[in-house]
Design a binder for these strands. Structure first.
Length: 139
DNA sequence: GCCAACGTTGGC
DNA sequence: GCCAACGTTGGC
């Protein structure tokens, strides 16, 4: 199946924090393209969690537990948030340089448009990343 | 801290 | 509706 990727600066909200919290409201998105992807997320969808600025790697997989609803922190109801729960921590984080070096991932939205904070991940890309992460299960 | 890429804003 | 100026993001 295909999935998603969200970025977070670990200073602001790190993967470990999500694991500790058990659930988080993914809000604060103020970009139309990213918002459109949020709207397309469905309950149960898997979401790679990427650390930007510091770490520069995908560290875990979250799942959507609540589909898009108006961002409680926005004065404009067109902005939306979703709720995420942690699902699995990757056996090995997959770094940006690894992704850049892998020809299977050269068309990834993350690499092509680095500023986008929410982006889709295609099935083939998803599998390639799991492989780089040393994933054992067949998911 | 710098710079490139991209989005947004505002004057015309 | 175009485009220059500016702000923000994110990698290095």
């Amino acid at each position: 199946m295909s999935g998603w990727l969200v970025k977070s600066e670990p200073f602001v909200y790190a993967w470990d924090q999500l694991v500790k919290d058990g659930k988080t409201c993914w809000d604060g998105v103020r970009n139309y393209q990213a918002r459109n992807y949020l709207l397309q997320m469905r309950k149960g969808d898997e979401v790679f969690f990427y650390h930007s600025n510091e770490g520069l790697s995908i560290v875990g997989i979250a799942r959507v537990c609540r589909e898009a609803y108006p961002d409680p922190g926005a004065d404009d109801p067109r902005w939306v948030a979703v709720d995420l729960i942690p699902w699995r921590t990757l056996p090995r984080p997959v770094s940006l340089s690894q992704m850049k070096a892998d020809p299977r991932l050269k068309d990834m939205a993350l690499l092509r448009q680095s500023r986008l904070s929410v982006s889709p991940v295609r099935e083939a890309e998803w599998k390639a990343i799991l492989e780089l992460a040393g994933w054992q299960e067949n998911v």
